[in-house]
C-alpha cells in the first residue's frame, strides 16, 4: 500500500461504539456481531489516553480471521456538566488467516480508524469508521452513524435503556448501506445491545464488560 495512503489512514475512522479507553488499570471485553463480522476485543488501559488490546475478528463474508494488536488513542475529550464528547484514533497490525475452507492461507493485515461520540444522559450521537487492508483477502472500508435516545434517565447502578438507530455503509456487500434499529441496555459495568438489520436481514449483538 502506498505510504501516502497509510498516512491518510492514520486520520481515518474505526470500529466499536462502546468507549474504547477505560480507566487506568481497567480491562474491558468488547464483543460485536453485525451483518459483516463477529469480533472480540480485550483491552487494557495503562494511561488515561491509551488502551492496548487483542482483537479477533471473523469476517464471515470473506472467510478469514483477523488477529491483531489494537492500540486506541483518546485524541480529545470534551467535558461538560451534562455531556461528554470524544474522538478516538485506533489502528491494528496482525495476521489474517483463512477460515471455512478458504484456500488463501494467511497474510499480514492492518487497519486504522477513527471514532467520535457525543453523549448526554438522554441523547447519543456517534460516528465510527475503519479501513482494513487484509492483503490478498482484500481491503474493506466501513462507516457507521448512530443516534440514540433514552426514554428515562437511569441513576447509578440502575438499568439504563436506550433506543438507537444505526446506519452503516460497508464496502463489498450487496447492500452497501443498511439500517439497524437496536436496543441498548446498560447496568453497572455491563452493556448489551440487541438489534436487527432491516436492509440486510441479520442480527446485531454487542456486549461490553468492564472489570
Amino acid at each position: 500500500m502506498k505510504p501516502v495512503l497509510w498516512a491518510l489512514l492514520l486520520l481515518a475512522p474505526v470500529t466499536g461504539l462502546a468507549r474504547p479507553v477505560s480507566y487506568v488499570g481497567g480491562w474491558t471485553l468488547i464483543e460485536e456481531s453485525n451483518r459483516q463480522s463477529t469480533s472480540a476485543l480485550v483491552h487494557y488501559t495503562p494511561t488515561p489516553a491509551w488502551s492496548v488490546g487483542l482483537r479477533n475478528e471473523w469476517m464471515r463474508d470473506t472467510d478469514y480471521l483477523l488477529t491483531a494488536i489494537q492500540p486506541t488513542y483518546l485524541l480529545k475529550r470534551w467535558f461538560g456538566r451534562d455531556y461528554q464528547a470524544n474522538i478516538y484514533l485506533h489502528g491494528g497490525l496482525g495476521v489474517a488467516t483463512a477460515t471455512s475452507g478458504n484456500p488463501l492461507g494467511s497474510t499480514a493485515a492492518g487497519f486504522a480508524g477513527v471514532m467520535a461520540d457525543w453523549e448526554t444522559r438522554r441523547l447519543f450521537a456517534g460516528y465510527n469508521a475503519r479501513y482494513l487492508d487484509a492483503g490478498h483477502f482484500g481491503d474493506s472500508a466501513m462507516q457507521v452513524f448512530r443516534f440514540g435516545w433514552a426514554p428515562y434517565e437511569g441513576d447509578t447502578n440502575e438499568l439504563h435503556t436506550w433506543l438507537m438507530l444505526e446506519v452503516d455503509q460497508r464496502s463489498g456487500l450487496e447492500d452497501s448501506v443498511s439500517i439497524t434499529p437496536l436496543l441498548r441496555f446498560f447496568k453497572g459495568p455491563a452493556l448489551l445491545e440487541l438489534g436487527f438489520n432491516l436492509t440486510d436481514p441479520s442480527p446485531l449483538i454487542n456486549f461490553t464488560f468492564r472489570f
Binding site: S22, G26, Y83, T156
Partner: peptide
C-alpha cells in the same frame, strides 16, 4: 462528563482502591 454507569464504575474503581477512602458513591 459523568453521563453513564461506565463513568460511575470507573470512579468507583479508582477511588475505591485507595486506602484513604472508606466509602464512595457516584450520583449521576
Amino acid at each position: 462528563g459523568v453521563v453513564c454507569d461506565f463513568c460511575a464504575t470507573a470512579m468507583n474503581k479508582i477511588f475505591g482502591a485507595r486506602e484513604e477512602v472508606a466509602a464512595v458513591y457516584v450520583d449521576l
